[in-house]
Design a protein around this nucleic acid. Sequence first.
DNA 1: TATGAATGAGCCTTCATTCAT
DNA 2: CATGAATGAAGGCTCATTCAT
Lengths: 188, 188, 188, 188
Amino acid sequence: MGAEHQTKTKIKEAALRLFVEQGVSETTVRDLANAIGMAEGTLYRHYATKEELTRELSQENYAAFADRIRNTAGTQESLRGKLRAIAKDACRLFDTEPTLYRFLLLIQHETLPRLPKGSANPLAAVRSVIAEGIKQGEAKITDPQLGAAMVLGLLIQPALALVHGSLSGPLSRYADDIASACERVIIR
Amino acid sequence: MGAEHQTKTKIKEAALRLFVEQGVSETTVRDLANAIGMAEGTLYRHYATKEELTRELSQENYAAFADRIRNTAGTQESLRGKLRAIAKDACRLFDTEPTLYRFLLLIQHETLPRLPKGSANPLAAVRSVIAEGIKQGEAKITDPQLGAAMVLGLLIQPALALVHGSLSGPLSRYADDIASACERVIIR
Amino acid sequence: MGAEHQTKTKIKEAALRLFVEQGVSETTVRDLANAIGMAEGTLYRHYATKEELTRELSQENYAAFADRIRNTAGTQESLRGKLRAIAKDACRLFDTEPTLYRFLLLIQHETLPRLPKGSANPLAAVRSVIAEGIKQGEAKITDPQLGAAMVLGLLIQPALALVHGSLSGPLSRYADDIASACERVIIR
Amino acid sequence: MGAEHQTKTKIKEAALRLFVEQGVSETTVRDLANAIGMAEGTLYRHYATKEELTRELSQENYAAFADRIRNTAGTQESLRGKLRAIAKDACRLFDTEPTLYRFLLLIQHETLPRLPKGSANPLAAVRSVIAEGIKQGEAKITDPQLGAAMVLGLLIQPALALVHGSLSGPLSRYADDIASACERVIIR
DNA sequence: TATGAATGAGCCTTCATTCAT
DNA sequence: CATGAATGAAGGCTCATTCAT
């Protein structure tokens, strides 16, 4: 028990890293096999196709991040508190696991379009947080979907600027500013 | 006269569309040729490699969009006015030329890392608008780079949500909300 | 065990034959694959490029032929004996393995310029035989390099004439005449 | 009048040089056009195909060289004199027009196989000189074709050694040695 | 006649996937 | 289960040749 699980984990770790470093299309099955120290053919014992690996990787990480967002929000009472907590936690995540973060937020269009419509995803998580706040009368905006998109934009683009080198230092350095921006955009 | 120019234009239009629809790596030179109704080899009389076409396409469009941002900002006096104008113009652009917009903003990391460091780009254009506003004491934030990233985030993610179908209607429908968000994030 | 060796050998045999029959540039990777009964892609597991295959083929055969010349010379005491033995052995080789011989001697400039400067080659082998003879006072000529070139000329051009059909029959039919010619050109 | 002739001459000069420098297959029609300063399509007004240009180039130069050999031989009475004269003239030609010489003698197998069987060629020219000498009882060898091949070998391989850099200086430096070698191989 | 853009078959190479060991 | 050689369909690119101007 767990051997299969471990192997899949190893594969997914390598895939995550290589997909982020080189892009999904640009990462070959051989690249993956080499990185793991495993034969090419062996990969196919765990995933039917490269496509399936990609999908599973996306789905799982999106779901996990959505959970993380929900949990983070759960630690706070007010919408304002929830948003600030989410923003700060996202910054922390970027600094702690930049590869995962980049995969989650920056690779979106390479993987998102292939995900089943209803899968758990960060945008939906943020939206439901905001929707709840709207119901409670805490928000100034009225469209939770738009609000969620904007919040995500505030979290993604500074991270991208860091990746490209136009911003420097840990993202946490900007956590307060970003949190405040989220607050101002959403909160009444 | 201009035949060469026209052909290149036709190639770039097709490339823009296919790159956005399918991704850069996923678009083959044959796809391009077929879309234009041109032999594969002919493409190579105009661009030495697919890579060169991609680069030229990115550079030109990034530069043009940066110009557009600067011009839009130039129509207004205050930072607040400039930001609102930029936001609204971006929404208009998305609705008018969705393909171009998607190329500009969504293809970023497939394309941006390959651009020469100093090339004209939207982020830099927004940054200099904000930097000027900071000097004039109009901004609440202090880091123009961070501010520019956040503004871009507010413009990009709603657009992305539209593309993914989680938001509907023309982006202009949200133009006011987005403009206000930009204002609240940046302005004193 | 040896499977890899066998496959490479099969590839090299086919390459040798096709390169001689059609020329190196004129032989496509598909030609090679078809001749071997192997997929094109498979070739690339054994040789990184067609260029690498060509180089290895040349180097190995040149080195082997140089060895053969040295060994043949080693069976004789006198320079005269060595030269006659080399000439006769070369004729035998042409009759026995015409493809190899043609590759060695006729493909020279398609192939030689790409070889590393110091690689073992027939010209050097003959030169050192002659150089030794000069030291022993057995030669009439004084420049071993020139002597070696002339001896090679006496071995190559009759072979070429046979290939072109202007001379007929096995080259061995002319072995004595060629051996005598070598002798007269070099020996005191 | 002569305009056509001049153009063809310019084309042939460029072709000769490029074919020798890069090989026939490796020289593209565009290479040729660029070297001449002429459009690609224009070449086809003078030669129906690259193949035809190659053939004409070979035929003419082979014929001219065969003539030159016959003329050189004609200046001498004895077979010995003829051979020495031919050898020395060949060395002179190599030093004066190395490109032409390389084309004539070193590119043989790239072009010879395509020539019509009976075309004038150096080997035939030398053969008839030797055949005449045999009839006159001046030769020690009995097969004029073999003799001609060997003489050509003595002229070609030293030239090749020079080209490859294993021999240095003008070929004329070795003219006497080569002439003597020819004499010893052929003359009674 | 000259031009050079256009053609399209074909070249070398890559890569996701299969399969015998 | 693991392996890695084998497969073959593309992919990017080249090039002899054609043709509208």
